[in-house]
Design a protein around this nucleic acid. Structure first.
Lengths: 148, 148
DNA sequence: TAATATTGTTATGCATAATAACATAAATCA
DNA sequence: TGATTTATGTTATTATGCATAACAATATTA
């Protein structure tokens, strides 16, 4: 039962990010399981409800995934009749994505559940401390273009 | 070119964690590419150099992965003669993992490269702000057991 | 009109991650 | 002691996440 030394990896911000994200991700996966949603299908549903009519290209951009990978996600949401694909008259290449009433209902249910689970998980941390962290995370998020 | 609204997802800490981690991960993957290392093989190498003699069970625990998934990682490091597997006389089930001289050399090279790349990526952020964030990330990392 | 770009799609591959089942060896316990 | 249980490493399998190439249909542009 010897203690393992990970001090070298601890010098990397990315190591801390990964480990803490793992904790939140595990909790989120469990939270979404009763709704039969994965992280990506959940994110897509939320974005479609909040941005009705958007197309798959824009959605894949905001979700930071490649278009081919979004196809199966949209297939699944459509199959479950949570969203619809509608031809756009002005651009017949693309589909406008809209939530169904069932999709909006699931959105409301899951939003509640996810919000409460995350709040519970992080209840031991001061809100202002979390806000401060989010501000820093936003800086990292935009670091790519801002650099080099 | 309409702006997409992700304010709902922005209410989740996990969303910010994921997006910022993606940025660091992309940078790390590129940094490790010249050394023909992936994130997991790199992490394993570092931990073996810093904890010579540990076995695969302990390593998989600290790396937060399942033992079966570690096998191929160790196979690859051994194949490349960066580490060795040595039978432990006192427990002939397990292998003691040790770095070779080549493993230690690669460790030093990559540590320099990774450190410099991350420093460059995050150069626009105040060090004390990063330290504060890491403190919060550590709280999240240990939130699981501390809860419910 | 011809060349180019965009949208959605299929196919494919690699990396990450989880589970079941197993052989070998050690530890426990009755 | 012998029988049972546990631990270690392994194989096989599966699901998921993520990237690229290639393509048909459509739109844009030069």
């Amino acid at each position: 039962m010897t203690k393992i030394n990970d001090e070298t990896l601890r010098t990397f911000v990315g190591y801390h990010l990964k480990r803490s994200f793992n904790v939140i991700q595990s909790d989120l996966i469990e939270t979404l399981r009763p709704f039969d949603l994965r992280m990506l299908t959940y994110s897509a549903l939320v974005l479609i409800v909040d941005n009705p009519g958007l197309n798959q290209s824009r959605l894949s951009q905001i979700m930071d995934i490649e278009r081919p990978n979004l196809v199966v996600i949209i297939d699944e949401l459509e199959e479950r009749e949570l969203i619809t694909r509608e031809r756009v008259p002005t651009d017949r290449r693309s589909y406008a994505l809209h939530p169904t009433e069932a999709g909006r209902a699931l959105y409301r249910e899951t939003l509640d559940a996810v919000t409460q689970h995350e709040a519970k998980l992080l209840s031991g941390i001061a809100p202002e401390q979390l806000e401060q962290m989010i501000a820093t995370l936003k800086l990292i998020e935009t670091a790519k273009k801002g650099q080099a």
